[in-house]
Design a protein around this nucleic acid. Sequence first.
DNA 1: GGCAGGGGTGAGACATCTCTTAGAAAGGGC
DNA 2: GCCCTTTCTAAGAGATGTCTCACCCCTGCC
Lengths: 218, 218
Amino acid sequence: MASILIADDESRISGFIDKGLRAAGFATRVATTGPDALHLALTGEFDLLVLDINLPGMDGFEVLEQIRGSGSRLPVIMLTARVELEDTVAGLERGADDYLGKPFRFDELVARIRLRMVRDDAGSSSELSHRDLRLDIRTRRVHVGERSVELSAREFALAEEFVRHPGHVLSREQLLSRVWGFDFDPGSNVVDVYVGYLRQKLGPGRIETVRGMGYRLA
Amino acid sequence: MASILIADDESRISGFIDKGLRAAGFATRVATTGPDALHLALTGEFDLLVLDINLPGMDGFEVLEQIRGSGSRLPVIMLTARVELEDTVAGLERGADDYLGKPFRFDELVARIRLRMVRDDAGSSSELSHRDLRLDIRTRRVHVGERSVELSAREFALAEEFVRHPGHVLSREQLLSRVWGFDFDPGSNVVDVYVGYLRQKLGPGRIETVRGMGYRLA
DNA sequence: GGCAGGGGTGAGACATCTCTTAGAAAGGGC
DNA sequence: GCCCTTTCTAAGAGATGTCTCACCCCTGCC
């Protein structure tokens, strides 16, 4: 599982991000001062840093600069107030990988995090696979053996969730919160429906039902 | 080891590039004025020049012109503000091999440097291509198979973005920020419209829509 | 056999996304 | 100044994706 470090002073924001990212299946940790953020970033424990500019002790720019100065290529997404576009430019010039203006939409942040992680794993490839099932995160192409399959956005996200946890039993609630979002109606049977769609498109025998528990990638 | 000359006046930027490139395994040297840059470029010690337009004493265009005038084929990557597409064109016409709009992502710069160095072993060309689609960065000429196609500046920039990431799904937001600039109205549908223009000019079946995600070069 | 609790699936309402088109605004060339 | 090109916005039609609902099936138990 991917670990994300959140550096933000305002607990209102960091708390919100923290909760959301956990719900989206990431491991998280919050730093509330510049020096803390820097120190944690350099431990090498994290896969990505979400960095606000306003931090006590040392501002985001400085943190970023020191991180890059130490030779680390840790992916960094900066948060900047929409007004301060120049800040953004400055941040990017100093080696941030992306930025997001506040206020931002949460799914936007998640999308960018995913994008960034794919990017950076991906000296190798952006492909997830299990048996003869292959998903390419970057191109959004899906193959079953030699056969190429078209999946909608939702179907792809669900398939991805399965392939990322091969063999694990994933409950409806888990899938619902990770693929559909944490605030989705818990009484819905969308998961069942979409598992059905996937079985149709990927072929039978791939996604097993575990009665009373959930589903599992065979 | 490859030696890279960085010509930039703002120490904030040149320092950043310098540090980053060293970390990426290049030998570097920084010039802060136009005449310095020209002089160093002509020593023959360097394998590539990263050249900003704003330089005291002599601007980037002039430096480039003099380098080419002296017969040197030193690969040059220009840094230009992305907004000013004309700068870009001007730079390329005067013999730059590639350009990068500011602000830029650092890994993008490294990628282009690598590309350029490989290219130049193989007889220099400033051509990007994918299948039977060819873009010449320097002359801004576009060919589809044998057919020559006229693209406007914006269309070219968009096409370029696709060809630089063949097969990848590029979201509207990515395209908007990379081709149109950071502060562009996120609610706009320009990307859609321009993809339409490109499809018209390049022929159908080349740019695929990935519903809910973005577009992809087939 | 009958029942209860899951689970599967087709139909259709609804929302969203995408494409096209027309035209206004801005800028360059003559 | 006038014309042409480029760029961008806006609006509407059409396509596709998403989700709910209702109903059927299966399994295990009595």
